[in-house]
Computed example of a mutant assay.
Amino acid sequence: MLYCQFSIYNPLGKSQDGIKRMARILATLALSATTLLSGCAVAQFFGTGDFPRYGYYQADGNWYFRGNNQTYKVDGADRDTFVVINDDYAKDKRYVYDRSVIVKGVDPTTFRP
């Protein structure tokens, strides 16, 4: 499956209202574009609903981390128990993840960032 992402300048400014308005516009455009671009997946994102520049998100049944203008798949993540703790950390029943990398020797049941 092909994932499509676009970066654009927000002419509505950096205020919360401007960001939310632009997010709604982009969401409308994205939904319209999916009917035209066969093979593109619409991902579920956290936060205000706009494409995350940094952090975890879920798409196509898998978890991903976006950082440094790149997207990394969170290999080994258990989809049923995966929980995002904050922008950097997540955990599931087996592991703690630091920006998509498994943190070795850390118990996910007692981990606190």
Rank of each mutant, 00 (worst) to 15 (best):
C4S: 02
G76Q: 09
I8M: 07
Q44G: 10
G61E: 12
D80M: 02
L2R: 14
G67V: 03
V74P: 10
S100K: 00
Y97Q: 02
T28D: 12
I25D: 07
D80A: 15
D75V: 08
L12A: 07
T34S: 10
G55Y: 12
W63H: 10
G67R: 10
G61R: 15
T110V: 10
D107N: 15
Q58N: 05
A23L: 05
A41Y: 08
T34I: 03
R79Q: 08
I85M: 06
Y9I: 05
R24P: 04
V74Y: 12
L26T: 03
T48Y: 08
G18S: 14
S15V: 01
N69P: 03
D88I: 14
G76D: 03
I85L: 15
L26R: 06
Q16K: 14
D17Y: 13
Y56H: 05
Y3T: 00
Y57Q: 04
V84Q: 11
R79E: 08
I102R: 15
T28Q: 06
L12V: 00
Q16P: 00
T110M: 01
D92M: 06
R112C: 11
N10S: 05
N10F: 10
T28E: 13
D107P: 14
V42N: 01
A27P: 11
A59V: 11
R79K: 13
I102A: 04
Y97E: 05
V101E: 15
A27Q: 04
S100L: 03
R79T: 15
K91F: 08
I102P: 00
A43G: 01
D107I: 02
S38G: 07
N10M: 09
A41I: 04
L37P: 08
S15A: 12
Y54W: 12
L26M: 14
F6G: 04
D60M: 14
A77G: 10
D17G: 07
N69K: 14
G47V: 06
N68Q: 10
A30K: 04
T34V: 09
V101F: 13
A43T: 07
M1D: 04
R112K: 15
D75Q: 11
A33Y: 03
Q5W: 09
Y72A: 02
P108Y: 06
Q5C: 09
K20Y: 06
A77H: 05
V96A: 10
V83I: 13
I8C: 08
V106D: 11
Q58R: 14
N68E: 13
T34E: 07
R21W: 03
V106N: 06
F111C: 10
R99N: 02
Q70F: 02
V103F: 08
P108N: 10
D107K: 12
D17A: 13
G76M: 03
P108V: 02
R79A: 15
K91V: 11
D92Q: 02
A23G: 01
V103G: 03
D98F: 12
A30V: 05
I19S: 01
K73N: 06
C4M: 00
V103I: 13
Y9R: 07
D60W: 07
I25S: 01
A59R: 04
T110K: 13
P113W: 11
Y57A: 07
